Structures are given as C-alpha cells and as structure tokens.
Deep mutational scan, measured.
Amino acid sequence: MASQGTKRSYEQMETDGERQNATEIRASVGKMIGGIGRFYIQMCTELKLSDYEGRLIQNSLTIERMVLSAFDERRNKYLEEHPSAGKDPKKTGGPIYRRVNGKWMRELILYDKEEIRRIWRQANNGDDATAGLTHMMIWHSNLNDATYQRTRALVRTGMDPRMCSLMQGSTLPRRSGAAGAAVKGVGTMVMELVRMIKRGINDRNFWRGENGRKTRIAYERMCNILKGKFQTAAQKAMMDQVRESRNPGNAEFEDLTFLARSALILRGSVAHKSCLPACVYGPAVASGYDFEREGYSLVGIDPFRLLQNSQVYSLIRPNENPAHKSQLVWMACHSAAFEDLRVLSFIKGTKVLPRGKLSTRGVQIASNENMETMESSTLELRSRYWAIRTRSGGNTNQQRASAGQISIQPTFSVQRNLPFDRTTIMAAFNGNTEGRTSDMRTEIIRMMESARPEDVSFQGRGVFELSDEKAASPIVPSFDMSNEGSYFFGDNAEEYDN
C-alpha cells in the first residue's frame, strides 16, 4: 500500500469516517454492505422474486439502478423543472426478469421514488447511507470498465484509444464523492478537466460571474484530485501550473494530454476495490451473516471469500459463452479491467482472455432483445487465490505491452514486471518541450526514458491461498515475461453508450 500519510484510507472515504482504527473501519464497511443486503432482500420480497430470480444479476442491476435514481437529487430536480413526455419524475423502474413456464419473461416495473427511498433508509437504520449508494455506483463503473473500451470518449477529448488503461471510473457520476474520486484513473480526471476547458473556450461566460466562481472551485478541486494521483514531483508541479492558470485554454489542454500520456509509464495511484452486485450481499445477509459484527474490507480476502460461497446467475444470449460472461463479471467484481492478464489468470486459476476474444456482450439486456431465446446460467466467480488490492500504480518500471492497449494499471499487489510499449508511448511525445512547463516536461520525458521494462514492481508481494486469511504465506508467482498482458488488445469491444 502506498503510505497513507495525511490521506484517509478508502474504507474511511467509503464510510465518510473520520480517523478510525482498522477494526472500526471493518465494522463501518460491514455496516454499509449489510445495509445493501437488507435493502436487496426487501426489494425481492416487494417484487415477489423467487430465490433464483433474486440471484439473477440482471435483476440486481435494475434494483441497484432504481435506488441510485431515487437518490439522484440533481436529476430529480431537473426532471421536475423540465417535464418530458412519458417520463414521470417521481417514478423509477426498469426490467425485471421472471421464469414463467420454463421461459424467461421481461416485466417492466415502476415504483415511486419516495417508496424506494423509504425501503433503502429502513434497511440502513434510517440513514441515507450515501456510502452504500456510492458502492453500487463503483460496481456499475467497474462493470462498464470491463465491458467497454471507451474509444470515442478518448478520441473526443484528444487522447489515444490505446490509453484505455487510464480510464478507470470514466462512467462514474460526478456525485460519487471521495470514494469515487479515489477509483478514477488519470485519464478519467484528464477527460473531465478537458471537457471543462473546452467549454470555457467555447463559452465566454463559463468562468464568469457567480456560476463561474463555482465552476472555478470545481476545476481547482479536480486538479488537486489529479495532482494527488501522480507520484513524481515534476508531474505534480505541472498540475500546479494547470490549476493556477488564470484562464484555462489550449496550453492547459496540451499540458493535460501530455500528463495523461506520461501516466502510461509514470503511473498514478488509483484505488481498486472489489464492489459486488447487491444480489451477492442480499443472500449472505439472508443466511444470517452479520457483516457489521464480522467486519468487512473491500481490499482484502473478504470479497473473494464471499464470491467463493455465492451463487449468481445471468441471462445468456443464444451465441454467448457462459464462461466468457463469467470472466467479464469476475473482472468487474475485482475492479480488474486494466490489470495484467498474466496476473489475473494466476489468481483466477483459469486463463483470462483479452476482451476481443470473449464471445459475450454486456450483462444488460436491451429492451428490444428477444426473450424467447434467452437461457440462463451460473456465473463462475470463484478464484484459485486471493491478493491484496493496490492503491498505487506500482513502481515506475515497465515491460512490453500489446498493440491495442499500451500499458496497464495494476489492481493487485503482486510481484511482476509491468508491461508497456515504450516505443509507441515515446513516439507520441513530439519533443515539444517549450513553453512555461518546459523544464517539467524535459524531466518527465527523462524519467520515462530511463524506466526499464525488466524491473520488478511490488517486490516480494504474492497471492494467498483462500485458507490464508491473515495473509501469512505469500506465494510469489513467476510470469512468462514475453507473454501478452493487455485486456483490450487489438480490440473490438462495443462502445459504451450512456
């Protein structure tokens, strides 16, 4: 783990906690998980779902989305002020799938948001429990990260689609708070800032007046979040320049895209947490497990152990491969979309394939898809080993990566060399080191050039047997250095459309 220093740990961010010791953190995270579980059980009762239907990941996603929508204050306010045809701002819903006479049927349900809020609060001892809501947002974000390569979004903001390893959390809503900021990748933060800068260039009043003052505060806050992700002084200094700019424009845009590229080699610290679907927490609570009393951590053995003992089902389209669908969801559960496939294969105990080789589309089923041909199958979400999630980018030494994705962002704290394609990355730096950030740029390029592919990161860190909950005997895996390590390699994943 990167030293926490003055930073709060993510469990504290996750639970809005002030400084807590490890036991208190485990208890408050457990409380959050228990609340999600209780809410899910109650919703299944309301909807009269069978046990099997309640364990269907598509039903879980609909129920999670309903509660997130019920608590989305800004959108609710907007919907009330701008009524649109056929949208009731006070209601929320989605597809629920039921097994009827041996076939899967889709039923569109509609609930009062007020009623959903009441059920959620009741499951969370009367609190709004925003930490639990954020947790579900991060699960949705991790699922998107594993399912889609955001080529269009990258290109629109002047970045290269091969930089997708920097895009963790790119679909997280803005209201996801400190826990959300911690899991956002460098590219995601750059993209958010670039969008602001572009608006400022096109709209003279963007930075002016009372609204402009708020915009400015948001801009500086985002700059500080991004600065905190960088691990070298030169990158941090460049972020200070971007933040202090009187009138952010093209120079800042250039600096930010430069920094994003540099992060492929001088990786930023991005938190990883295993956020599971509500249909995993519900049955665990129903079986009598007391998360608050037992304590829970999002970055240790607990999620692995929970998945070892969970039964989750998914709808499967006619030509999809259930094992591939399982891999997709497994990666999402562990926030591992940008991790090295060699490491993932070792931990999972079966070969993890790149996205383009998977015969599976996303987990969600569109409303126009034919239910007649839908089957369902068990998702295999178990693992051979477990490993500690990392909050750091690993040290800054790398190795060759593949054509589709030119770097990785480690999820697990496991000893290995970190793949990246130096030639491709360095070719993108057209040696432009003039301007006010020239000395920093020169320094950053120097550090990137001296990074050695064969150097090892996370020295001495290994994986653990599932029986080793105290992480007492690390097993340090050895990897084939020459092997392909990137998930979005030469990829044809669908595009994420909101």
Rank of each mutant, 00 (worst) to 15 (best):
65 R>V: 07
43 M>N: 02
198 K>R: 15
310 S>V: 14
179 A>Q: 06
395 N>T: 15
209 G>D: 11
32 M>V: 11
72 D>P: 02
395 N>L: 05
302 D>Y: 11
71 F>I: 07
490 G>E: 12
144 N>S: 07
180 G>F: 09
390 T>G: 07
41 I>A: 09
116 I>V: 10
70 A>D: 11
395 N>A: 12
384 R>K: 14
237 A>V: 11
168 Q>E: 06
92 T>D: 05
220 E>N: 09
33 I>P: 06
255 D>N: 13
280 V>Y: 01
32 M>I: 10
465 E>L: 00
73 E>K: 10
177 G>M: 07
49 L>F: 14
53 E>I: 01
90 K>Q: 02
61 L>S: 12
368 N>Q: 14
153 A>S: 15
397 N>M: 12
485 G>V: 10
23 T>M: 12
201 I>C: 04
69 S>C: 09
136 M>S: 07
129 A>H: 11
23 T>Q: 14
487 Y>A: 04
94 G>C: 03
272 H>M: 05
5 G>F: 13
395 N>W: 00
167 M>Q: 05
342 R>I: 08
346 F>P: 00
111 Y>N: 12
109 I>G: 00
139 W>T: 05
332 A>K: 06
75 R>I: 11
26 R>Q: 05
440 M>L: 09
379 L>A: 01
370 N>D: 12
447 M>I: 15
33 I>Q: 04
187 G>T: 13
5 G>S: 13
453 P>G: 15
104 W>D: 04
283 P>L: 07
294 E>C: 11
343 V>Q: 08
353 L>K: 14
303 P>M: 08
420 F>K: 01
30 G>A: 10
173 P>T: 11
437 T>V: 04
492 N>Q: 07
173 P>L: 03
219 Y>N: 10
129 A>Y: 11
494 E>G: 09
443 E>G: 09
396 T>E: 02
164 C>K: 12
58 Q>P: 07
23 T>S: 13
458 F>E: 01
9 S>I: 09
1 M>K: 13
343 V>R: 07
61 L>Y: 01
384 R>F: 11
438 S>F: 05
318 P>H: 13
474 P>L: 12
446 R>I: 10
257 T>A: 14
75 R>Q: 09
185 G>A: 09
118 R>T: 14
280 V>I: 15
274 S>N: 03
246 R>K: 15
350 T>I: 08
98 R>H: 15
495 E>W: 09
367 S>A: 15
329 V>S: 00
107 E>I: 11
192 E>K: 11
467 S>K: 10
365 I>M: 11
240 D>M: 04
49 L>S: 00
460 G>Y: 03
226 L>V: 14
105 M>P: 00
363 V>D: 10
148 Y>D: 09
74 R>G: 07
245 S>L: 03
381 L>Y: 01
27 A>G: 07
278 A>P: 01
448 M>R: 04
449 E>P: 04
98 R>Q: 15
87 K>S: 03
234 A>M: 05
299 V>D: 11
222 M>H: 05
101 N>S: 13
94 G>A: 11
383 S>G: 13
30 G>D: 08
174 R>E: 09
267 R>Y: 03
82 H>Q: 14
27 A>R: 13
325 K>M: 11
99 R>C: 14
243 R>L: 02
78 Y>C: 10
240 D>R: 01
211 N>R: 04
426 M>W: 01
330 W>L: 04
397 N>T: 15
442 T>E: 02
398 Q>W: 00
90 K>N: 14
393 G>E: 09
380 E>P: 02
257 T>M: 05
42 Q>Y: 09
87 K>L: 02
410 P>I: 02
94 G>L: 01
176 S>L: 01
466 L>I: 12
8 R>S: 00
197 I>T: 10
364 Q>V: 07
174 R>H: 01
266 L>T: 10
166 L>C: 05
453 P>F: 03
30 G>N: 03
313 Y>M: 05
261 R>S: 05
461 R>H: 04
121 R>F: 05
294 E>T: 05
442 T>F: 06
15 T>K: 02
348 K>M: 04
183 V>H: 14
462 G>E: 13
332 A>C: 02
255 D>T: 03
380 E>L: 01
42 Q>F: 03
313 Y>C: 14
474 P>C: 06
69 S>P: 07
307 L>E: 03
56 L>F: 13
100 V>A: 10
173 P>E: 09
300 G>Y: 02
225 I>N: 13
175 R>Q: 07
220 E>P: 06
41 I>H: 00
430 N>Y: 13
10 Y>R: 01
291 F>N: 07
115 E>M: 07
27 A>P: 04
94 G>S: 02
435 G>W: 10
401 A>L: 12
484 E>H: 03
31 K>M: 15
277 P>G: 01
324 H>K: 01
60 S>C: 15
93 G>M: 07
492 N>M: 05
269 S>Y: 07
321 N>R: 13
354 P>Q: 15
219 Y>Q: 04
